[in-house]
Design a protein around this nucleic acid. Structure first.
Lengths: 157, 157
DNA sequence: TATGAAAATGCGGAACA
DNA sequence: TGTTCCGCATTTTCATA
């Protein structure tokens, strides 16, 4: 799907305010309401927009600690990977998880209330996952940036 | 702010569908439209809901590669950290960045079109940031989980 | 531009301390 | 008796054909 600068403007706006009304969006980017609505439909149907989500404050919900955990499995067979991934998806404290090249198999970001809570998660979830042989935990002192998608650069929008 | 199970149900729903209408939300959680709207206002004003965002497909926008980069600075003075963080915030390819305890100072997640694009980002952005003395890049083979906030567990909602 | 749907707001009433 | 929250009705705003 080919995107033009108006599409990028729509994406940029919706990335910053996912609940903006169609009429406000149309006015902001200088399009009629109907044209704006049609483009939005296209962007959603084509999969460029995957969904809309409320961003909740982990802190306000009592989760003030972020851990970044490097995990290795005992083997890299696809079956082992699939079993581990199914398990990690079930853990509600997992914010992100990537299968990696390099020294460790997975990098996992975890939200916890505090160190005690992290200990629980480590014990009840991480060490209980199938095929895990090595777990290396680091803790975030500060969150500097956190977004799900790349910023739309002004020069492309 | 004290949250009850109705609040958790609202948060859970909005996390999954950030553009749901107030009336649909009210019906889903079994509340009148006005009561629902008031609670939502409160959740927004109190900071539990930080915002609403469209989730864009990095793939559909041409960014098919995710790198996880560990970065060390030459000193951990607050001034050095602040200068580095100001610089990293300016890079549009940065998805997340955390100041860490442990061996490396920062863990940074980066979106790139391909390896060539990553080389450019590495050269133009990462090595150009102030106080950086060590950069260690790993590449994601697969994204298993990616969310900004913790899942609301059914038993709490 | 028109029509119906949805959101904001004000008011009354119930539950509870 | 004061506070908090629900629900209904009105007004205004918005989505969509």
């Amino acid at each position: 799907m080919a995107l033009d600068r108006i599409d990028f403007a729509i994406l940029d706006t919706l990335q910053k305010d996912g609940r903006i009304s169609n009429s406000a969006l149309a006015e902001k980017i200088g399009l009629s309401q109907s044209a704006c609505s049609r483009r939005l439909d296209q962007l959603e149907k084509s999969g460029v927009i995957e969904g809309y989500h409320a961003r909740l404050s982990n802190g306000a919900l009592g989760h003030r600690m972020t851990a970044i955990v490097h995990i290795s499995l005992s083997g890299q067979f696809e079956k082992s990977l699939a079993e581990f991934e199914a398990a990690i998806k079930r853990c509600p404290n997992v914010l992100s998880c990537h299968l990696m090249s390099g020294e460790y198999d997975y990098v996992v970001r975890i939200a916890a209330k505090d160190l005690e809570d992290y200990e629980r998660i480590h014990k009840e979830w991480l060490t209980a996952m199938p095929h895990v042989i090595k777990i290396n935990s680091s803790f975030a002192l500060r969150e500097v940036v956190d977004r799900t998608s790349m910023g739309i650069r002004p020069e492309t929008a």
